[in-house]
């Protein structure tokens, strides 16, 4: 009797468990069982169980068997009264042709009373390559596609080009209109002999009557400039860039006449006093300065020989 009771109790317990277990199931399906390599296939997993049962999913990494897992959706949970349904979609692919098996997946069902496994059915899928028609000739690689012309694609290049043309135009205009670098104005015309130039300039200065109109500084400045330019051209030293003492020293080297030297000394010193010391010269000083300046020029005119090949200087000169 006792044995019967124990048997009945065990039967009830196991029966209840069986009842629960029978109410939990796993359903695994794929969209197709034939695909081209690289195609993506959906693997749908659905686990149905009672609320009380806790389902532990198998860990799916980056592949299932030899199939590559492209992506996994989140587990979608739906509750229906006492039941609960878990759904997940896994996208699979393969890059080699052949038959692939999706092995049985094992889910753990944990109940208060016991723990059991729920196994899915294994599935199969074949991946095949494209059928190549070997009767047709091999075609060349397709050329790049022609993009239809659109002006907006080139707008910045066009604007840049316009700016560049404008910049070049203004640069050319700037350089064309720029003031030419100042040319050095020659102090004298080399075709005109030094003494003729000097005598002409002295004559011109005299005719302007500068000192008679109280322009003493200008008169003596110009007179000494004419004389210095003459000495520079005639005796080939930098008279325009020399001071009075330097000019007298150079003059003494080439002219032996004491009178001429003395006269030049007086002319230059009077001019220095007028130019730099605000001295007002006497009329005699002004007249004498002009006379002596002429005398210096006339006394140092080079004497030309008959064949005009060799030019000699005046007897007053040392350098003949």
């Amino acid at each position: 009797m006792m044995r019967k009771i124990i048997f009945i109790i065990l039967f009830v317990i196991l029966g209840v468990y069986q009842f629960y277990a029978q109410n939990s199931y796993v359903k695994v399906s794929i969209d197709t069982n034939k695909a081209l390599i690289g195609d993506q296939v959906n693997l749908n997993i659905e686990v149905n169980s009672k609320k009380k049962i806790q389902i532990v999913n198998p860990i799916i990494t980056d592949s299932i068997g030899k199939l590559i897992v492209v992506s996994k959706s989140k587990i979608d949970t739906t509750i229906k009264e006492n039941d609960i349904v878990y759904k997940q979609k896994i996208i699979l692919t393969a890059f080699d042709s052949g038959y692939y098996q999706i092995p049985s997946m094992q889910f753990l069902a944990i109940d208060k009373l016991d723990t059991s496994f729920l196994n899915s059915n294994p599935l199969g899928i074949s991946f095949s390559t494209l059928a190549i028609d070997t009767t047709k000739p091999i075609k060349d690689i397709k050329p790049p596609l022609e993009i239809p012309f659109n002006i907006m694609d080139y707008i910045w290049y066009i604007i840049g080009g316009i700016f560049l043309i404008i910049a070049i135009f203004f640069a050319i205009r700037y350089f064309k209109n720029r003031k030419p670098t100042e040319k050095v104005i020659p102090r004298f015309d080399p075709k005109i002999p030094a003494h003729i130039q000097a005598l002409n300039d002295l004559k011109q200065l005299e005719s302007e009557k500068l000192w008679q109109n109280d322009y003493f500084k200008e008169y003596h400045s110009r007179l000494t400039d004419i004389l210095r330019l003459y000495l520079e051209r005639r005796f080939n030293f930098l008279a325009m860039e020399s001071t009075t003492t330097e000019i007298l020293d150079e003059f003494a080297k080439v002219i032996s006449s004491r009178d001429l030297h003395s006269n030049l000394n007086i002319i230059l010193n009077i001019a220095d006093m007028v130019k730099f010391a605000k001295q007002i010269p006497t009329p005699e000083d002004n007249i004498k300065a002009m006379e002596w300046a002429r005398q210096i020029v006339e006394s140092t005119i080079p004497i030309e020989t008959e064949d005009k090949d060799i030019s000699q200087t005046n007897p007053n000169s040392k350098n003949d």
Binding site: T243, T244, T245, E246, F276, A277, K278
Partner: peptide, 11 residues
């Protein structure tokens, strides 16, 4: 001993 400057002084 001059009351004015001449170019020679500068030179």
């Amino acid at each position: 001993k001059r009351g004015f400057v001449i170019p020679e002084d500068v030179r």
